[in-house]
């Protein structure tokens, strides 16, 4: 793979992704000024996740690399998610 001519990403693709990331950033700042209550956390995390996904897929090349890398990353994020969810099983009943 390293020796072969695997996909070289164009500058224009990167610039397009960067523009999307900047747009999403201004969106999240705008939305934060509205008072959405509990939803504001979800919206902010949703937009952040979308941005992270773009960085992972394009800037970090996951979209173009071997499928194994995508599975790797997916497993590690699921592991983190399990930590989060299981911890909250403990805390949800305390309050």
């Amino acid at each position: 793979m390293g020796h072969g001519k695997n996909h070289i990403v164009n500058y224009s693709t990167y610039i397009f992704v960067w523009l999307t990331l900047v747009t999403l950033t201004s969106l999240t700042v705008t939305v934060a000024s509205l008072d959405l209550g509990f939803l504001s956390v979800l919206v902010a995390l949703g937009i952040a996740s979308l941005k992270a996904l773009l960085v992972l897929l394009v800037f970090m090349h996951l979209r173009f690399d071997d499928r194994m890398f995508r599975i790797f990353v997916l497993i590690s994020f699921i592991t983190l998610l399990i930590f989060l969810v299981l911890t909250f099983f403990d805390y949800a009943n305390i309050r």
Partner: peptide, 12 residues
């Protein structure tokens, strides 16, 4: 975000 862009472009 911009530094990530230039980083990726450096590899291309």
């Amino acid at each position: 975000l911009t530094s990530s862009l230039t980083m990726a472009m450096s590899i291309t």
